[in-house]
Amino acid sequence: MENSIQVKGLQKSYRQLHVLKGVDFEVKKGSIFALLGSNGSGKTTIVKILTTLLKQDSGNVIVNGFDVVAQPGNVRQSISLTGQFAAVDEILTGRENLVMIAKLRHVKDPLQVADDLLKRFGLADAANRRASTYSGGMRRRLDIAMSLVGESPLVFLDEPTTGLDPEARIEVWRIVKELAGNGTTVFLTTQYLEEAEQLADRIAILHEGRIIVSDTLAALKKLFPPAKVEYIEKQPTLEEIFLAIIGKKNEN
């Protein structure tokens, strides 16, 4: 089995609204695949179908060798999902959230698994605080950590950095790269070309219900308009300014 995901002719409507009009793509095992599309283009709909939360109207979807309609139980055994909005239990502490998921995944030592993940995600100090007191970035990290319990071979991340400040975003990028380094297949969606560029081995662009291109970054770059050489003063981006200031603070 070379492909973790195989999608053919995928269609989905919400009443009149024809969101997916025949989507095809494949995701290679062990790769990072980015689905790039603007807000409302249907990224979350695709994620929900691939993770068995929603039924497609037509088309074939195979995840880790299992059909999502015929064998949803097997699919769920072999994936994990981090949804678009951080699904953490705010009344529980960070540790309790992780222990709960570890118990539901029936891992051997839930407390140990939780502690390891807390350390790995820089949440050890906040482990015994309720998740409602966490910042957006911490909540997202906890959310992703919860998806990594049980070490599924395929992880879905739906807009993992939307709404995060630049520092937290770079932290999430680091986590995603580390995951893929360990051989996990990552399917992520994003609205930002830059994020796809940073992370993905392969980028697919979803537009008006279809994948208009799906290729490696290098191949895609050939399709983009050539870079123009212009002599203008380059203003640093907000992100660069922000990081420069934060960096200075840390040095002091």
Binding site: T51, T52, D89, E90
Partner: peptide, 13 residues
């Protein structure tokens, strides 16, 4: 609303 059910429903339980 917070996606907690979705999280559970995407798990093998």
């Amino acid at each position: 609303q917070r996606g907690i059910f979705e999280r559970f429903n995407s798990m093998p339980i």
